[in-house]
Amino acid sequence: MRSIVPVLTVVAAIIGLWYAAVIPMNIKEALMQAERAGAEVTPASARDRRDAAALGLVMQNSFAIGATFDQDRPRLPAPHQVMAELWDTTIDKRITSRRSLVFHAWVTLSATSLGFAIGTGLGILLAVGIVHSRVMDLSVMPWAIVSQTIPIIAIAPMIIVVLYSIGVQGLLPKAIISAYLSFFPVVVGMVKGLRSPDAMQLDLLRTYSATKTQSFFKLRLPASMPYLFASLKIGIAASLVGAIVGELPTGAQSGLGARMLTGSYYGQTIQIWSALFAAAIVAAALVGLIGLIQRLTLRRMGVTA
């Protein structure tokens, strides 16, 4: 309860700022429409208005402020417009409909989940290899780092084109881009976690003549869990970004990325923003889900109270 007040305060502040920003962003369009409807607008010439400062226009034409919140194709949609669109495309549409955001979110979510699974699996495997083999430590880690310095936006189209040319399309290419982004935090966190037991802990196992496999399952793996979960939270968010980016270059018909893209083709800013919000909501839900699994797992392991 105590944490809800600061959170709501911040939300209120953001919404306030947002509404405030909507006015100058949309004032020129609003004045254009007002003029067409026969209203008196200062300055009267559209040319003069184009070069005028937005804030000045707002001062001179305060009658048009109301209209800035209600544009069809606003430069910046007002919060209530985005909410209405979100409501309309989630609750009011059948989820099988192409106009339903739930449908698009589901498409993106499946690519995200598959990519996250691949990325996590790959990340854990690489981490195990890196911790146990000096050769892998020296050879894999630098490449893993290099892979993340290449902008995903540059690599995504290549992956899609290459996979398309060998006949792979649909979910998998998006999942691979998503895995490409999510394996890295898992490798880094898992390597750190598997190496977290100190020398004394390892010596103790040596006094039992434990094998490498036993040390791994009895000590390294459980010790790495808190690190793994921290990485998974970053990884799942990265997976979602990957899946959305993977939808952009294909001109895909469905998915949140596709919604954003078609929105920008047709100047449907409200659609872009609502897709953006849907993505944020999905991301928050996924991170929350990982957090829940983390709490349950760590509690079952007895690590936390």
């Binding site: 802990q201 010596d203 103790l204 006094t207 039992y208 003549s209 036993q214 690590v303």
Partner: peptide, 28 residues
């Protein structure tokens, strides 16, 4: 032939006391 006790107890936080004591027995 020997059991070794280190300066720090070094019990595994994810195991109960019983589980910690069973650790060498499981390994052996």
């Amino acid at each position: 032939a020997y059991g070794y006790v280190f300066q720090a107890a070094g019990l595994y936080p994810w195991r109960t006391i019983g589980g910690n004591i069973r650790l060498p027995l499981e390994i052996m």
